[in-house]
Write a protein that binds this DNA or RNA. Structure first.
Lengths: 295, 295
DNA sequence: GATATGCCATAATCAATTCTTATGACCATC
DNA sequence: GATGGTCATAAGAATTGATTATGGCATATC
């Protein structure tokens, strides 16, 4: 399939570029680097044999050919969405959604996602099994769960893993706190021992030389941490996926400690082979919805 | 751009699968392996959360969702071609096409390609510079030529190389020859020393232990070799791209020496950066046309 | 019914594309 | 001129996507 070098994703990107007015802005919008956009557009131009954009120091503007292509790109975009909508349309009522998730995800990400899914699909029943990553993986392996959404692992035996997206654990403090945060003397709000989130946070802090202090607090859930942060009790770590509301409300803000942003991955887990019915539908839905979730 | 997992190439492949009636047949048609098709369709099904094909031992048939998607796939295909045609449409008359090519390509592939290009674009002037690969690359580097199409190299300094496609040098004999070919005692029809084609053929034959014989013939062009093969003078090597007519005419056939099929690559060469005008247009055209050229 | 044939699925491996980071050149604006 | 924005290039890493090899399963054939 190396033949064409011309597909709808390139067109969608081209559209974004024109609408954003610059390669850089488009790159930001789709969360890739600017050179990636440069390369993709060049490839598209090469495939068509036509210059599509007039480059300048202030951005890009479409050439005549580019303007023509823009129209087609929009039409194709529309047709693609229509195809998804049409094919995805359900005829028989869906069975309940059975899904396992690790704590952070179950608390932060899934509620939104499930709510939107039910908006679209009607009142599907939901059984959400919460556990740590290992527990969920085991239950997927033994077919107790058709589908899991977990933090971290990049591979697990006898299981099919697919990437959901990347997450960032951001250091946050109360919005009222002074600008400079002294890492050594600010209380840290921990999750309980055994939590996957705690493990990665511990590791990252140790790398920075931060040792546990008596003034640190240990809390049993992400929600508790969020509340504690808002109350000014210290520095907490919150997932980018679950942080939105708190930021919007203006109660908390991201601490100016850029080295402390912790990257990790969320992955789908399913038993090898066939994923069907409600679970398949939910996974596909979530995957499409993802770009609109995190900021 | 890892977000969607859903693009027009997947749809085009899906369409091919349904129209071919089986994954295997579709794989043959698009020249990829069957597992590649399996994987691509699975990915598409995953992205939509829907089963598209009913698998059986006799092939595949679309499900309801699959039939719906097929319609959309056709529509999108059509729209994509329309977009290409529209954007590619020319307003000002094109300048002459200036292109360099190595001997085999200039003789075997380019005439067809240029003819079709002119059918589409009108009577564009053509200046075709023939030379061996190194000579062409030098002239591209020095900007004497905007574009070259050459055999072989996978990289060259200060030059942008892009893949045109893969070529196979097939061992051919007269159709009238007996089935079994004794490599040791059959005369080989060589190109002259210095030819890129000769170099790779020599290497391949040496690996098989075949030494030059007094009965071998040396000829100055691909056309001469093709004629000599048809006349039964011995074993020749012809490019898959240029062999079509001779095979069709029934004068020659591929010799049953599968280990002797020699793979090599054809590449576009252009100066770093901007390729515009007629050359850009020709390259894009050729790239789209390619699937219909070789067998 | 045994056996063979053809189709699809999986696993392991390798090659190719695509992305990222780092950097440079260029143009506007202060 | 500096500064801050833009786009382009290069080199490396990561992801994707291909390939070959193999196995299961259903239909067809003897």
């Amino acid at each position: 399939m190396t033949i064409a070098g011309f597909d709808s994703r390139q067109l969608a990107l081209f559209r974004t570029v024109v609408e954003a007015g610059s390669l850089t802005a488009a790159a930001r919008r789709v969360h890739v680097s600017q050179p990636a956009v440069t390369a993709a557009i060049q490839k598209l131009e090469g495939a068509l044999g036509v210059t599509l954009l007039e480059r300048s120091a202030r951005g890009v503007t479409p050439t005549d050919a580019g303007r023509k292509l823009l129209g087609h790109a929009r039409a194709i975009d529309a047709l693609m969405s229509e195809a998804v909508a049409d094919v995805t349309e359900r005829h028989e009522p869906l069975g309940p959604l059975v899904i396992g998730a690790s704590t952070t995800i179950a608390a932060g990400l899934l509620p939104t996602l499930i709510a939107r899914f039910r908006e679209l699909e009607g009142d599907v029943g939901v059984r959400l099994v919460v556990g740590n990553t290992g527990e969920i993986l085991d239950q997927v392996r033994s077919r107790e769960l058709p589908l899991g959404l977990v933090e971290g692992p990049s591979r697990a035996p006898r299981i099919r893993l697919e990437r959901f997206g990347d997450d960032t654990l951001l250091p946050v403090v109360a919005a009222s706190r002074e600008r400079r945060i002294a890492l050594e003397s600010t209380p840290v709000l921990w999750r309980e021992v055994g939590s996957g989130t705690r493990a990665v946070v511990e590791k990252a802090l140790r790398r920075r030389g931060r040792r546990p202090l008596p003034m640190d607090l240990e809390l049993g859930s992400t929600a508790a941490i969020r509340r504690a942060v808002a109350l000014g009790l210290g520095l907490g770590f919150l997932s980018r996926w679950s942080i939105g509301d708190a930021l919007d409300a203006g109660r908390v803000r991201v601490a100016p400690l850029p080295d402390l942003a912790i990257e990790r991955r969320f992955s789908w887990a399913s038993a090898s082979g066939e994923l069907t019915g409600t679970a398949a539908r939910f996974r596909a839905f979530a995957q499409r919805e993802r770009p609109s979730l995190g900021h």
